[in-house]
Nucleic acid binder design. Sequence first.
DNA 1: CGCGTACTTGAGCCGTTTCAAGTACGGTGG
DNA 2: CCACCGTACTTGAAACGGCTCAAGTACGCG
Lengths: 243, 243
Amino acid sequence: MRRLPVSPLNHFESREKCPPCAWESLGTFEKFSPAARKAFEAIWRTRFYPSAAILFVEGQPPRGAYLLGSGRVKLAMSSAEGKSIILHVAGPGELLGLSSAISGQSHEISAETLEPCQVNFIRRGDFCRLLQEEPEFSLKVIEQLSRDYFVACGQVRTFGLSRKATEKVARFLLDWAARDRNTTAEMQMTLPLTHEEIAQAVGLTRETVTRTLADFKHRKLILTDGPEVVICNRPVLESLSAA
Amino acid sequence: MRRLPVSPLNHFESREKCPPCAWESLGTFEKFSPAARKAFEAIWRTRFYPSAAILFVEGQPPRGAYLLGSGRVKLAMSSAEGKSIILHVAGPGELLGLSSAISGQSHEISAETLEPCQVNFIRRGDFCRLLQEEPEFSLKVIEQLSRDYFVACGQVRTFGLSRKATEKVARFLLDWAARDRNTTAEMQMTLPLTHEEIAQAVGLTRETVTRTLADFKHRKLILTDGPEVVICNRPVLESLSAA
DNA sequence: CGCGTACTTGAGCCGTTTCAAGTACGGTGG
DNA sequence: CCACCGTACTTGAAACGGCTCAAGTACGCG
């Protein structure tokens, strides 16, 4: 399973076609009046980042909030010794860095692009003003925070309640299959993550992930071909994850 | 270290004196106009619960949101085999069950009183209407969700990044000391939790908590007398938790 | 063709969990 | 007042499981 090769061209492709689509298709401001919408859009600064770019870092004071227009962003947290765990992989339309922008406390997580991304940034002052003045925006923020909390709870569950490696990996595969819209009925999906990153997402070492995945393959629960994964025996996988 | 004996009388005491103080002292609605505040207060139903009462259960569809007036509430999550982990111990003024009330998804955690509590309940329909109509309320909700997210991230950190028992317990003691306003300058505090509950809060077994605490006591990092704990050597404890 | 990155596989170590006994304390009923 | 009981805490010994270290393989890319 190798990381998907990402053409550097993607970056520039998105530069061309995404700015117009971002606001319309993301659905973040569809309820705003046209005039109000224009005013708000003017506050945001659209930026483009290559792969592996850093949006913000754990421990850093918040500069503002981020609306992801295109691409995927990895949200992670790391310890002093360099170990890190992945909390979430955010997709287009998600607001990032909210809790810090709201409280003013340092970011508790870091955000790093996994692919070339288009990101709309808003300074903290403007963000807070928007919260005060635009109730519709507040509701969007509330929805995002609610989702973030669910995700965080899910991670607490996999890290805290799933002690065995098989549980963690099974949960991870099923979660990913459920979230990925590209997942077909046969439960085929593409994991744009390395074993290392999967390990960070579930709280194991790289080697243990390899071993567990190999074990699943042996037991004919999954098939793998590079980053492609097919879930063959979902019921058994679910029973493993429920344990 | 035994659980604090709680007089059943506390329950009735709070019934007598808390309703008036709750709204004023919690500071949740201080910015509302007097008229608006009265209208909102009328929506909430004040209830009293004894110790170990259940406010809501994991997996249950959300009925509404809860504003804790007095007492402490344990927020926990449990696995199929009965293991459970404590996410947070909420205190007066906190809003509970928000993320589920917002999204409509089943509660991802359970809430159980640790002491007799006064709780103000609002039905989900009223809650959502309040969100739509009262921006000040939205902001309160945003603040609470932001705090919840920080707490959840903290738990992800202790469960995911702290592998060793000493790290987890040291972090727990310092966190608790920082949060507890009754903590004196000498770092004395009262832990209203059993070893079992501490174990659930940091992801260890009851026995390991006992052993680790005994180890700390041996090393003169802490002193314990029943539920009373004194942190004697904070620097060392911090270095252990940072590891 | 050689290099870098990611994956694979094996062997041994280490620390928590598990299981098992036993202690301490508060409350209850005789 | 005391014996009894339940809950919580303590302590020891053994087992399990993932981690660490180490070696080797596979693949894409310049």
